[in-house]
Nucleic acid binder design. Structure first.
Lengths: 241, 241
DNA sequence: GTCTATACCACGATAGAC
DNA sequence: GTCTATCGTGGTATAGAC
C-alpha cells in the first residue's frame, strides 16, 4: 500500500517531467538543441517555464536526460548482444562484422521504433556526438566510456596485430564516420550534389557503412616514416586501381 | 594613381574588418562559435559593437567570413594539387592515396602555419563540418560543392567498379572520419580512456587516417540482400572468424 | 561610407509567494 | 511542486555623428 502510494506520488510528479521530456525530444530533433527555446518546450508541454529548472536544473541537463532515456537501454542492448556473440563463439575472437553488428543492430532497432523517436532520434544522437559543446562531450564520454571500452577490447581480440594506439585511432575514425552518417543527410548534397539520396532506409545506409568500416579497421598499418609528401616529383603511388 | 587611391580607401575600410576577423577567429578557435559573444569580439578587436553588423551583417555571416578567409585558398591549393597530379599521370587514373594526399597536404600546410591559425584553425573547420546549424551546412555545401565534385570525379576514375551512389556514400563516410578527427581531441578520451594521445603531431594523425580511408574506399561492395538481423533467435551472424 | 550610442526583444536562470 | 515576476546577457536594428 505504501508502495502503491509512493508509486502514485512518483507518477504524479513524473507526469510533468515526462511531458517536458517528450516535448523537448521532439523539438530538439526538429530544430536542434541551440535553436530550441525553453519557452517553446514548456508551452508545447503545457507546463510552466520554471518547471524545467525545477525538474532538471538547466537546459543542458534537460538534453542529457533526453539522451539518456533512449541511449541507456540501447547501450545495454549493445553490450548484451556483444556478450551473447562472444559466449556463442566460445573463446574464438569475433569477426569485425559481428562486432560492428553488435553496435549497429540496436541502433537500427531504435531507428525503426517510431515511439522512441525513430530515425530522427538517431540524427539527434549523431549531432550530439559531433557537437563541440563541452558539456555534451563530457557527458557522452563519462556516460559511455565503459561501453566503448568493451567494444575496444573485442576489436583488440579480433585484430591482435594492431597496436593499442592504432586501434584507438581507428575506433575514433569509426565513430567519426558513424556519427557523421547518423547526423548527416544535409551535407550529403555536398557530395552527391543532385538528389539528397534516400534517407528513409537507414538499414541500407548502415549496410553500406559496414564494409567501409570493416575494411578500414583491417587496413595495413601506416608507414610512419617518410613524412609529408612533396607534391612535386615523387608520386610512386601504390597498388593502382 | 587612382588605383593607388582606391587601394588606400580599400585598405582603410579593411582595417576594422580585419581586426574583427582576427579577433573573431582567435575567440572562435578558443571557445567555439556559440560560446563566443559579439561583445567579446568587438572589445577584443577594439571596435564598436555595431561594426560587426555593418561589415558582416550578422554573427553567422562573420563566422562564414572567418572560414572563407582560410578555406578558400586551401581549397584552391587542393584543386591545383589534384590537377597537377592528374597532368603528371597523363590519363592514367590516380591512386586513392594520391587523391587523399591532395586533400590532406594543403590541410597539413595550414595546420603548420601558425600565422593562419595553425592546428587550432583545423579544429575550427572540423567543428564547422560537424556542426548541426543549418546555416553552416548550407554555407559549406554551397561553397565547396564544386571542389568536392572534382575529387569525387577523380575517385570515380580510380574506382570505376563502384556505382556512383556507393561512391557518394563512401565519400560521405570519409568526410565524417576526417572532420571528426580534425574537430576531435576531446572525444578521444571516450576511446583511449587514459591519455588524450599526442595531438600535437597532426602529420602523424593524418598518416594514420590515410590507410583507414583508402581501405574503406576500396572495400568490397555491401551485400544488400539479407536485411536486418533478428537479435533474438537466429544468430548465425556473419561469416565467422 | 564608416563608425558610434543606444534601445530592443528573446533567452536562460533565479527568488520568493502560494 | 508550481507559478509569477524579474534579472542579466545575448544577438540585433537603427538614428545620427563624422
Amino acid at each position: 500500500m505504501s508502495m502503491l502510494q509512493l508509486r502514485l506520488v512518483d507518477s504524479k510528479s513524473s507526469v510533468t517531467k515526462e511531458k517536458i521530456l517528450d516535448a523537448a525530444e521532439a523539438l530538439f530533433m526538429e530544430h536542434g538543441f541551440e535553436a530550441t527555446g525553453l519557452r517553446q518546450i514548456t508551452t508545447g508541454a503545457g507546463v510552466n517555464l520554471a518547471a524545467v529548472h525545477y525538474h532538471f536544473g538547466s537546459k543542458e541537463e534537460l538534453l542529457q536526460a533526453v539522451l539518456t532515456r533512449r541511449l541507456d537501454p540501447m547501450n545495454q542492448e549493445r553490450l548484451a548482444l556483444l556478450d551473447q556473440l562472444e559466449n556463442d563463439a566460445r573463446g574464438k575472437p569475433l569477426t569485425c562484422e559481428a562486432i560492428i553488428g553488435a553496435m549497429f543492430i540496436p541502433a537500427l532497432k531504435l531507428a525503426r521504433d517510431k515511439a522512441r523517436g525513430g530515425k530522427n532520434f538517431l540524427r539527434l544522437i549523431g549531432r550530439a556526438y559531433a557537437d563541440p559543446a563541452p558539456f555534451i562531450r563530457q557527458f557522452l564520454s563519462h556516460q559511455y566510456a565503459p561501453m566503448i571500452a568493451f567494444f575496444k577490447a573485442a576489436f583488440g581480440r579480433t585484430l591482435p596485430h594492431l597496436p593499442a594506439k592504432e586501434l584507438s585511432w581507428r575506433l575514433h575514425f569509426l565513430m567519426g564516420a558513424l556519427s557523421y552518417t547518423l547526423a548527416g543527410t544535409d551535407v550529403l548534397k555536398l557530395i552527391s550534389a543532385l538528389n539528397p539520396i534516400a534517407t528513409d532506409n537507414d538499414e541500407l545506409l548502415l549496410r553500406r557503412l559496414g564494409p567501409f568500416l570493416v575494411a578500414g579497421l583491417q587496413a595495413p598499418l601506416a608507414d610512419l616514416s617518410e613524412l609529408t609528401a612533396r607534391p612535386k616529383s615523387g608520386r610512386r603511388g601504390v597498388r593502382s586501381a
